[in-house]
């Protein structure tokens, strides 16, 4: 995607004088309804909270203070580092990371397999991978829960085969959340890797083979570096939405262990009603994601310069 975005684009300037008008709708809609809300949220994170929802227009660092500093149960002890929210973020990163690794473990071989099919058969395979993604995320998550339940088809099947003696408790565990995230975003892993492997020129590995490199050496030294941008893109596309996800932990995890998404939701729609804190948590999440994307963009740029 990134490589294609550059090629051939500077060639045409047919509508140069209309550029402003062509871009105006996109600019105005996105500036007003996408950028402005995010900026507004940034502002809210520095305001004073109103008890049970809402803000008072007074500057305050209380939201960030609450996030990073622990002043004890009663709020009057000397500040220490607050681990509660860091732990929630850490759990989210861990859950999203586990889901990403699972997706990579299954997604890479799949993408590789598809990309090495005859050119005619490939679109059909890609098609097969993408169809489930078009089904509502909610329905997919609930289907997953139905499948994994204690009296669900999976346990019934395993009991029937005699693989287990008593039903596995999967729903309401961290594993269920990871499986849910893995299932939600798997195609995001497969597609970029597929695109990268498909572009890979297998003549390179032939050359290596001619030089008597072993198969695994060729794979590690030549193919993997060549498809690395695709792998990284896939990981990001799975990791980022998993990080802020709300449905999987809520429906599959039993709402027992907060992830970032639930923490933020609770500030606006649930028990807590602390808007500035919810805004601050959102801004910290957004910062994390943007840093990650920035690192990715740098890595892509470096990869492009090399090739």
């Amino acid at each position: 995607m990134a490589a294609g975005a550059v090629g051939g684009s500077s060639a045409s300037s047919t509508y140069r004088e209309a550029r402003g008008w062509l871009l105006l709708p996109a600019w105005s809609v996105l500036l007003f309804f996408s950028l402005a809300p995010v900026i507004m949220m940034l502002v809210y994170s520095f305001l004073t909270k109103e008890h049970r929802g809402g803000v008072i227009w007074e500057f305050s660092l209380a939201a960030y203070d609450q996030f990073f500093l622990d002043r004890g149960l009663f709020g009057d002890e000397p500040p220490r580092i607050q681990w509660t929210y860091i732990a929630i973020f850490w759990r989210s990163i861990w859950q999203a990371g586990a889901a990403t690794l699972m997706s990579l473990a299954v997604g890479f071989p799949t993408a590789y397999f598809i990309a090495t099919r005859p050119a005619k058969a490939r679109p059909l395979w890609v098609f097969l991978i993408t169809i489930p993604y078009w089904v509502n995320l909610l329905i997919r998550t609930v289907s997953m829960k139905f499948l994994l339940r204690e009296q669900g088809p999976l346990n019934d099947f395993l009991l029937w085969t005699g693989a287990i003696d008593s039903p596995l408790q999967i729903v309401n565990t961290n594993l269920a959340v990871q499986l849910g995230l893995f299932y939600s975003y798997l195609p995001f892993m497969v597609l970029p890797i597929y695109a990268a492997v498909e572009r890979y020129d297998f003549a390179l590995s032939e050359a290596a083979a001619d030089l008597y490199a072993s198969k695994w050496t060729t794979l590690r030294r030549i193919l993997l570096p060549a498809v690395k941008p695709g792998v990284v893109a896939g990981c990001i596309l799975v990791f980022v939405p998993s990080l802020g996800s709300f449905l999987a932990p809520d429906l599959l995890g039993g709402a027992r262990n907060f992830m970032i998404g639930s923490l933020i939701e609770e500030q606006f729609k649930g028990n807590a009603g602390n808007w500035p804190f919810g805004a601050a948590a959102s801004m910290i999440l957004l910062t994390l994601v943007l840093l990650l994307l920035l690192a990715f963009a740098r890595q892509q740029a470096r990869a492009e310069r090399r090739s």
């Binding site: 300037s13 140069r16 209309a18 550029r19 996109a26 802020g244 996800s245 957004l286 994601v289």
Partner: peptide
């Protein structure tokens, strides 16, 4: 406007703006 009007300075900025909704986590 992005691809048929030649090079211009605000191009990567425009691209950033257009992809902003993809970069911000959905809950945010």
């Amino acid at each position: 406007g992005m691809i048929r009007t030649g090079r211009f300075r605000a191009r990567s900025l425009s691209f950033g703006l257009i992809s902003l909704p993809l970069m911000v986590p959905e809950i945010v």
